[in-house]
Design a binder for these strands. Structure first.
Lengths: 148, 148
DNA sequence: GCTTGAAGCTCTAGTGACTGTAGGTTTTAG
DNA sequence: CTAAAACCTACAGTCACTAGAGCTTCAAGC
């Protein structure tokens, strides 16, 4: 294993993210500053790789960076209570559940829009009509929080 | 019906969005500029309300603003072909399907993380462990990888 | 007609989580 | 020793809003 002295590009490839993302994480203090060569290039070891991997994995699960920051702090204090980490994950699960539910209803509406589209002219187009008239929806999706 | 001369706040409430959002849509040219009172306040009629409703509905369905812009243009030329609108909706459906699939796998991992969490100390915490070790995943979520 | 408070106005900056670009320097393979 | 790839900093841009400062206008009650 090339445990030490890994340049940033190699680290990026090894965890599947962009070089700039790593620099960004360092900039906002999510990753500790890397060691530098005489020419000021970053060099990483296994500890950094693991931490970055943790961050990326949590990001893929949809955790926002503040939550990840908290999880990282928690992971460091080995004897602290698990309940906080548990709570963060639970909140994340609830957010995921909400998003899934919303997307499923959106999907059914899109499918319905496409299935019933008989006209080949805009004035008969179900897609446009459905979007224009909220009343044509089966379900109301205007839950609350705008989601990205 | 107060068909004409509706101020921005009332319009915002009637479609369930923020006042700033409406001004933003006007600014980026998604909504045509409103009529103004002598004192330069915006006043809206039914046509504006319908257009804004269309936009909000499409946003709730996950359409990005450029796609909505295209749909609005399409809806205007009443005799153009429906295929383009259809294509946009179809692409959107595919995106929604991908997102649902991803979120479902994320959900199952989050549930697994929480279910198997027996330790009440961080060192036994499944949540932290799962995030730390990518190998504990059932499925890999790293959709695309610019890997060697 | 006058007052008052809610609602409106513009303009600017901030959000989250990156991504891209310009212009220069360092490393590394041949 | 050279040339190309990878690296560096610093800053601007993305998307779709959201928030705030500091001011003006509107509508209702008296």
């Amino acid at each position: 294993m090339n445990d030490v002295a890994m340049p940033i590009g190699q680290l990026a490839r090894s965890v599947g993210c962009k070089v700039q993302t790593i620099r960004y994480y360092e900039q906002i203090g999510l990753l500790p500053p890397a060691a530098r060569t005489a020419g000021a290039q970053r060099r990483y070891g296994e500890a950094h790789r693991q931490k970055l991997s943790f961050i990326r994995h949590a990001r893929e699960l949809g955790f926002p960076l503040p939550a990840i920051r908290e999880l990282l702090a928690l992971a460091h204090e080995q004897d602290s209570d698990c309940a906080r980490a548990d709570g963060i994950a639970r909140r994340q699960l609830e957010a995921v559940n909400r998003r899934v539910a919303m997307l499923m209803s959106l999907r059914s509406e899109l499918e319905r829009m496409l299935k019933h589209d008989h006209g080949n002219r805009i004035r008969d187009c179900r897609v446009i009509a459905t979007l224009a008239d909220h009343g044509l929806c089966i379900e109301a999706h205007h839950a609350d929080g705008a989601d990205s």
